[in-house]
Amino acid sequence: MFQDKCRILANEPICGNFYRLVLESKSIAAAAVPGQFLNIRVEQGTDFLLRRPLSIHEIKKNSVSIIYKTVGRGTGKLSLKKPKESLDVIGPLGKGYTLSDGKAVLVGGGTGVASLKFLAADLINKQQAAVVVMIGARTREEVLCGNEFSELGCKVEICTEDGTLGFKGMVTSLLKQYLSVMGAHPRVVYACGPMPMLKEVGRLTSHFRIPCEVSLEEHMGCGVGACMGCVVPARNGGYLRVCKDGPVFDAREVAL
């Protein structure tokens, strides 16, 4: 965990309201594992604006990148930042995915797809895993990172709610079809996306008895486990902190 002033190497729109931000940081890049996030201070002024937690999309030797969607005040301001400016960044934070070998299915919805890229890269390069990625989006303009996954050597399945690209319907319907086929049995399913999607992925994997890890999102105060603001109900009662006990959880651990 570091707190660094990171120079912006790039901050550009990629499609729809999605942006890619590349930050220079050798220390964060060296320490990060897939599923972890950065907590970024968007503004230096006196206006009190909490840091924005954003999942790591990719690491290179000297840089770390994220993909975000402009949804409100914080991400809106972030999109106006220019290369060579710097940002105060805390990271890498949180508990990441458990890497498995064999066959893995990655299910992503919306910006959730972005963090799965880092995971896919490690699964293929470090575990020699066979990776199937299911990318869900509302419409073809919002399909994220399809080519990036193909270039890594993943089998890519695209799914749009309006049917403008790939399978028409929800990404979870595609997952259900996939898991229903005899012999498709993957060793693990990883999922990152909106809560209704994760809920359904959790239900399906439990039905098919396949281990599943989900990455959750929640508004955060501190990002380091101190304030108890970002909790999620635990399956066994009580609450778990998304920033510290997660953001990646075994799907059986949390009440989705």
Partner: peptide, 19 residues
Amino acid sequence: AGNNQPRLWETASGLLNSI
């Protein structure tokens, strides 16, 4: 165990909490 979500809400130069 604390309260249910939501627990945090950003306001103008402030933060509402209900932990």
